[in-house]
């Protein structure tokens, strides 16, 4: 397993958010994490990346227990995130945004830039545009590109399709698949369960801080409970 969460309990102050979450992602796997608003999806990603510390339980990444490791350390080990709402550095150029994604890496970044520009040729043309002046779809590419700059083995994505027009939602799933096909494991949080399950290998459903359901993606798509709750059909 590339990533394994075991019985993770995360609190914000006194509020018990993640209540015994266990979850894993294999090397090169595309896993989606579904769940309603405030079910703790973002908190799960934050716990994985070390932005919040769990009170108990463990996070193991690539054979190393990183439960107490810093975010920087985890990024060095091969994690990267596309944050909720993308959070680009808006007054900085595309190139500068991408560079920040590779801050943890030393040495020549040219190969990393080339990879990102290969995946998103549009970004190559927009190198010097300020990220904040780009359209939502373009910003999405920068956000994914920025995360890929650290050449991660696990990409965490928090609602990549949020705020995008339907056509761009499809495009963003194409991006996820492209990343996946390049051999990067992806853990994607989505509200759009239908879309997410159509590309994912497996899925987890989070309900008020607990994993309520987990199965192969195609099985989840046929699951009656899930269909009632999320797929609306």
């Amino acid at each position: 397993m590339l990533l394994a969460l075991k019985d993770v309990n995360t609190y914000y102050g006194q509020i018990h958010i993640l209540q015994g979450v266990s979850l894993d992602v294999a090397e090169g796997e595309l896993v989606c994490l579904l769940g309603g608003n405030a079910s703790g999806k973002s908190t799960t990603l934050k716990t994985i990346l070390g932005l919040v510390a769990p009170r108990s339980g463990s996070v193991v990444f690539d054979g190393e227990d990183v439960t107490r490791a810093s975010t920087s350390r985890r990024i060095e080990r091969g994690m990267a995130i596309v944050p909720e709402n993308r959070r680009l550095f808006s007054p900085m150029t595309v190139t500068e945004n991408l560079e920040m994604g590779a801050y943890r890496r030393s040495g020549d970044l040219r190969a990393a830039f080339e990879r990102v520009y290969d995946l998103f040729p549009l970004l190559a043309d927009r190198r010097s545009q300020l990220a904040g002046t780009m359209s939502g779809g373009e910003q999405q590419m920068v956000a994914v590109g920025r995360a890929l700059m650290s050449e991660p083995r696990l990409l965490l994505m928090d609602e990549p399709s949020m705020g995008l027009a339907p056509i761009l939602v499809e495009r963003s799933f194409e991006i996820i698949q492209a990343v996946h096909e390049a051999g990067v494991a992806v853990l994607v949080v989505e509200q759009n369960a239908n879309m997410a399950l159509s590309v994912a290998d497996r899925g987890y459903v989070l309900q008020t801080g607990r994993i309520a359901l987990t199965d192969r993606a195609d099985a989840l798509r046929e699951n009656d409970d899930l269909r009632k709750a999320y797929l609306g059909r």
Partner: peptide, 14 residues
Amino acid sequence: RALREDPLAAEQMG
């Protein structure tokens, strides 16, 4: 500059 612009995103980028 990244830090000034968005400390949280800066942290998430490591």
